[in-house]
Simulated assay, not measured.
Amino acid sequence: MNKIVLLSLIFAFNFINAQPKKKQILLLGSFHFENPGLDVAKVNTFNVMSDKSQKELENIANKIKKFGPDKIFIEWNYEKQDKIDKFYAKNTDSLLQKDADEIVQIAVRSAKKLGHKRLYGIDYNGADFPYDSLVKGMKEAGQLDLIKKNEETMKHYETDFNTKITKYSLTELLLDINTKASNGGNLQWYLETAIKGGKKDNFVGAFLVSEWYRRNLYMYALIQKLTESKDDKIMVLLGAGHTAMIREFVKHNPEFEIVELATVLK
């Protein structure tokens, strides 16, 4: 073999092996199982406590266990980690039977199966979300078409989700809201509708979008800070609107590779 060719092959082999192994990140976007009505769009509650859903949740948790994340991050104020630890230490069976929240039904259930000592809160609650001011700004600016588009978007989301919960299983719902189309739809409202709200010198819409970005950027920063070099795989369980945003950040980080929920649950 030609010496130059041989040296080239050795160089290529060493280069490939010198590349750090990417950390796998499972972004699990969820709807709020207990649906406290705090989101702008108002949707019906899906019964995750039924026997059928509980069996599905057991299957989902077993699949997550097989994936094997070293850490699980959740939508809980990072400043209240001590409360998460106390909450996580409670009797698991009691929590699973009484608390329908997705943090319990997915994160706690999965973490216990994995033998994790804790869950990691990464939510940041210092950002603003002035939706009422956005609507007011649209009205004051006479943005009738934008107001109509906003109302139609919210109504479509509510109708679409409420229809799906009458037809889909829990697993099908979770897979559906983690699709490329769903992720794109979550971002679209912020960047095509909300951002335009307000008169020329009133940036209420852009401010709302920037605050939403800030909240998610802070969560993404915490994910990176809390992920240690020894962690090969992590899982992030958040509302689907958050995971759609964080997905965009992760795309530009060569240290991570996204693992799709559909791949884990297959």
Rank of each mutant, 00 (worst) to 15 (best):
K3M: 11
K117G: 01
N17W: 14
Y213N: 14
K148R: 13
G241I: 03
L38V: 09
A111E: 02
H242P: 02
I223L: 13
F129G: 02
S229L: 12
A18S: 15
D93R: 06
N35A: 14
I147H: 01
Y131S: 08
T193C: 07
L261H: 06
W76T: 00
D85H: 00
L170E: 03
G198W: 04
R247E: 14
S94I: 10
G198F: 05
M235Y: 03
K136S: 10
S133K: 15
K23D: 05
K112G: 01
L265C: 07
T92Y: 07
H156E: 13
M245S: 08
E79A: 13
Q81S: 03
L114M: 11
V108F: 05
D160V: 04
L38G: 08
F129I: 07
K136L: 09
I106H: 01
G142S: 08
F129A: 10
K112V: 01
Y213Q: 11
N162M: 05
L134C: 09
K199Q: 11
K266N: 14
D145Q: 12
I246A: 02
N216V: 07
A18F: 12
E140R: 11
D99L: 02
K22A: 11
K86S: 14
N14W: 13
F161P: 01
D51F: 08
K155G: 06
L38F: 11
A41C: 11
K3G: 08
I147K: 09
G241N: 04
D85C: 00
E56A: 04
E75C: 01
Q105K: 02
T163K: 12
V236A: 01
E34D: 14
E211P: 05
R247C: 02
G241T: 01
I84D: 00
Q224D: 12
D232Q: 12
S30Y: 00
A141D: 02
K55R: 12
S182D: 11
P36A: 06
F11M: 14
E260F: 09
G239V: 06
V236G: 00
K71Y: 05
Q24M: 10
K66N: 13
H252R: 12
K22L: 08
S110P: 07
E211R: 10
D93H: 07
A127V: 09
P20I: 09
R247F: 08
M138T: 03
Q97A: 15
N202F: 05
